[in-house]
Each structure stands twice: as structure tokens, then as C-alpha cells.
């Protein structure tokens, strides 16, 4: 049995301990906002918050989240995610959309730690999130815009 919290709810699941968190979220909890893109921590589409920091759920066995708090795109709250989502909408960042949950999780984590990121900060924080549609120009724009909103 693995006990953990997802989006504020307690779970106690009897599951193969090797099962990646990604597939527990999707197949068992039906939280499908977290996406599968590579399975090997190369693309970032599966990014969730684990105890408040970003984590690639495709390489996180469920046994490793015992006692932890997981937050997915569906459960995100706070000024940073609000500003990021608003900027993403305002600038129409997504194209196909598959990577965007992961992009938004990484961008939110960046802004939580660096309120006014430089282009280099953005390059470094977002380096692990592939956008195959190459919406990178707008991702960068939207992070700067969200930072501005947060400055107030």
C-alpha cells in the first residue's frame, strides 16, 4: 500500500510499487492533465509538483511518493499559477497543447523562486520542457508577462 496526497486528497493505493506516478495519476486517478511524452524525463510533459517542487512523474516510482503531497495541473492554486495561466491565455501560447501542462508547471515553479526571471533564467528553468510545436517565443513572452502581473 502506498499512502500519499494528490491535490489535497488522501490516497492509499495497492499498486505495483514500480509504477510511475504518471500512470497512477492517469490510469488510476484519471487526472489526465499530466501528459506522457517520452517516458524518460526528456520532455517534461509529465511535470507535477512533488512536495511543492517540480518533478517528472514518468521517472518517479509510486513507492517514492509515500507520504508526499502531489499537485497536478488540475490542483494548482496560488498567485503564480493564476498569473501564468492568464498570460498563457492572453498571449495564446498553446498550439497542439500536449506539452503545455508541463510548461505551465515549470514556469510556475520558476516564478515561485525567481519573481522577475531574466531570459537566461527562463532558458535554464524551461530547458527540460520540449514543445514540439515550438511555441517557445510565446512561452518566453508569457513568463515575462506573468512576472509583470505578479509585480503588481
Amino acid at each position: 500500500m502506498t499512502k500519499f496526497q494528490v491535490n489535497g486528497r488522501d490516497y492509499d493505493l495497492d499498486i505495483d510499487p514500480d509504477t510511475p506516478l504518471l500512470w497512477v495519476l492517469r490510469d488510476e486517478l484519471r487526472l489526465t492533465g499530466t501528459k506522457f511524452g517520452c517516458g524518460v524525463a526528456q520532455c517534461g510533459a509529465c511535470t507535477v509538483m512533488l512536495d511543492g517542487v517540480p518533478r517528472r512523474s514518468c521517472v518517479t516510482p509510486i513507492s517514492a511518493v509515500e507520504g508526499s503531497e502531489v499537485t497536478t495541473i488540475e490542483g494548482m492554486e496560488g498567485p503564480e499559477i493564476t498569473a501564468v495561466q492568464a498570460a498563457w491565455n492572453e498571449i495564446d501560447v498553446p498550439q497542439c497543447g500536449w506539452c503545455q501542462s508541463g510548461q505551465i508547471m515549470s514556469a510556475t515553479a520558476l516564478l515561485q523562486q525567481v519573481p522577475s526571471p531574466t531570459d537566461d533564467d527562463i532558458n535554464n528553468a524551461m530547458a527540460g520542457n520540449i514543445c514540439r510545436c515550438a511555441t517557445y517565443v510565446r512561452i518566453r513572452q508569457a513568463i515575462h508577462a506573468a512576472a509583470k502581473t505578479l509585480e503588481g
Binding site: 489526465t32 506522457f36 495541473i73 491565455n89 495564446d92
Partner: peptide, 18 residues
Amino acid sequence: PRLDTKSKTDGTAIFTMD
């Protein structure tokens, strides 16, 4: 504005795998 942006920023867009 695009009609599909919101659902693609809050995780609610439904794709095949979903």
C-alpha cells in the same frame, strides 16, 4: 483569441490518451 487555449492551459482538454 483561440477557442482551444483555455482547456489547453488548465489540463481539461481531452486528447485520445485521456
